[in-house]
Design a protein around this nucleic acid. Structure first.
Lengths: 244, 244
DNA sequence: GACTAACTTTGACCCAGATCAATTGGGACC
DNA sequence: GGTCCCAATTGATCTGGGTCAAAGTTAGTC
C-alpha cells in the first residue's frame, strides 16, 4: 500500500485531512510534523489499543473506520466513539488508553510518537490550541450522543446513526438530491453504538427501508433519497449539531 | 453573601478550588486572574445560560449544583453534565452555548469575562494546557456516562449516580466506614441524567433502601453504609474511573 | 395550625425492545 | 457448482421500564 505524504506548505492539498494538526496549519509545523510521523496499518477486526495499556503514540485515521468501546465485566459493551478518516486518536499528556480501540475495517493511521509530538505541541501553541478545539468538538459530540442514548427510540437512534455517517461521507460535490454511502459497521457494532441489540437494529433498518426513508443495495450499501426526511426521523431539530 | 478572594501565590489556600486555573498555578497567573474575576449568584431553578445564547464569560462553580441539559422539540430532555463545586463552565474560543445551564440549588459562580480570559490564556500556555487536561477529563466522564446510559439497568444507573455524588462529596477526612451526603437533585433531575422516568427513579431508590444498600433520612439525605457494595450495584469494575 | 404547591411514593397496566430460536443470504475458497 | 462460515433477517415470546392515576409527604406562608 502507498503511504501518503505531506506536501509541506500546501495544507489544502494534504492527502490526510488531519483535523488535529493540518487544519489551518502553516508550513513550518508541517515540516516538523512530517519529520516525526509514521504510518501503521491494521486489519479489520484487529485491536489497535487495549483499554488500560500504555499508549506511546497519537495520530489520526487516514482511511478506514475504528471504534472506541467500553466493556463491563459481564460483557456488555458500549461504543463511545466512532473514528472516521481525519479523526484524532490519543490523549497528549495521558499515559494509559481509557478505551479499547478496534479497527472495524482495514485502517491506516498516521502516527506521531507521543514524546516528540508533545514537545512540538509545547513549542507551537497553535497546535495545542487546535487540539483543545478538537477535544471540545469531541465533547460536544459525546454529549449529543448522550441524548441519543438516553432519550431516543430505536428508530430514531438508527436514523441518527445513519445521518451521522451520511454527513461524514458526503463530499462537497455530492450535495445533490440523494446521498449514497457504505455502512462501515456490522449490525452488532451499530447495536453497540446505539445501546440496542443487533436484532432490534436489523428490524429498524428493515422498517426504515420498508417506509422508503432509505434504500438498500445488499446489506451495507445505503441510499438516502431525502436527507431532510432522515433527519426528521432522527428527531433532530438542528441540522446536525456536533455529532461526529 | 461574602465573596471569597484569591490569595496570590498560595493556591492551596485558595477558597475556590478552581480546577481550571488554580491547580498547579503560580502567583503571577493568580494575580492576573484576580484582576479580571467577578462573582455571580443564581437562585435554585434559575437558568444560567440558554442553549444557543451568546456566552460572554467562563467560570467555575464555587458552591451549589448546576446541570447541563439538552432538550428535543417534543420536550424530552437529557442531562449531559453535572456541575459540582470546582467544575468549569464555558468554552474558550466558542461563542454560543451548546446546552442549557440550570442552577438546581442556589449557585455561586466565579466568572471571568471571556475576552480577557482568552488573552490571558494565550499569554500563559500553562493555563491553556490545564484547560485541555480538564476538557479531556470531561470527555472521559461523558464517555463513561455513555456506558451507563446505553447498557446499564435502572438499578445500576441509580447506584452509579449515587456513587458519583458520594465520591465528589467525600472529604479527605471522611473516608470512614460510611459516607453521608445530601442529594442535590430532584427525582426528576436524576431521571433526566439517567435516561429514566421519575417514577422509575423513585422505585429504584426505594428498592436500594429496602435492600440496605443505602439509608434515607427524609427524601434527600443519604447514608451509604458500604461504598464497595454501592459500587458493586453500579456494575463498576474500576474504583470510579473518570465520572465526575 | 391549616392551606397550598411542589415533590415523592406507590399501584395497575401496557408496550418497546430484549431474548431465544430458527432461517436465510452472500462471499471466499476449494 | 458445492460447502463452509459468518452476517443478517425474521418470528415468537417475555419483561423492564414507561404511562397513567391516585395518594402521601414536606416546606413554606398566611
Amino acid at each position: 500500500m502507498n503511504t501518503p505524504n505531506f506536501t509541506a506548505g500546501k495544507c489544502s492539498d494534504c492527502p490526510i485531512r488531519h483535523r488535529a494538526v493540518c487544519a489551518r496549519c502553516n508550513a513550518d509545523e508541517l515540516v516538523e510534523l512530517d519529520a516525526i510521523k509514521y504510518y501503521r496499518t491494521y486489519e479489520a477486526g484487529q485491536t489497535v489499543i487495549w483499554s488500560g495499556d500504555k499508549m506511546g503514540f497519537v495520530g489520526s485515521v487516514v482511511s478506514g473506520v475504528a471504534t472506541l468501546t467500553q466493556t463491563m465485566e459481564d460483557g456488555r459493551t458500549q461504543m463511545v466513539g466512532l473514528l472516521l478518516p481525519s479523526d484524532f486518536v490519543g490523549r497528549p499528556g495521558r499515559d494509559g488508553a481509557a478505551y479499547n480501540v478496534v479497527a472495524t475495517t482495514d485502517v491506516v493511521m498516521c502516527c506521531f510518537r507521543k514524546k516528540p509530538f508533545e514537545e512540538l505541541m509545547s513549542k507551537t501553541p497553535h497546535i495545542a490550541h487546535r487540539l483543545l478545539e478538537m477535544t471540545l468538538d469531541e465533547l460536544d459530540a459525546a454529549r449529543e450522543w448522550m441524548l441519543v442514548l438516553g432519550r431516543k427510540t430505536a428508530r430514531e437512534k438508527i436514523a441518527s446513526l445513519l445521518s451521522i455517517i451520511a454527513r461524514r461521507n458526503t463530499t462537497p460535490d455530492n450535495d445533490s438530491v440523494s446521498t449514497v454511502f457504505d455502512l462501515p459497521l456490522t449490525r452488532e457494532a451499530m447495536a453497540d453504538y446505539l445501546g440496542l441489540t443487533l436484532e432490534t437494529v436489523s428490524r429498524q433498518v428493515s422498517a426504515l427501508k420498508r417506509d422508503g426513508v432509505i434504500q438498500l443495495q445488499g446489506k451495507r450499501h445505503v441510499t438516502v433519497p431525502d436527507m431532510t426526511r432522515l433527519m426528521e426521523e432522527a428527531g433532530d431539530d438542528t441540522d446536525g449539531g456536533f455529532l461526529i
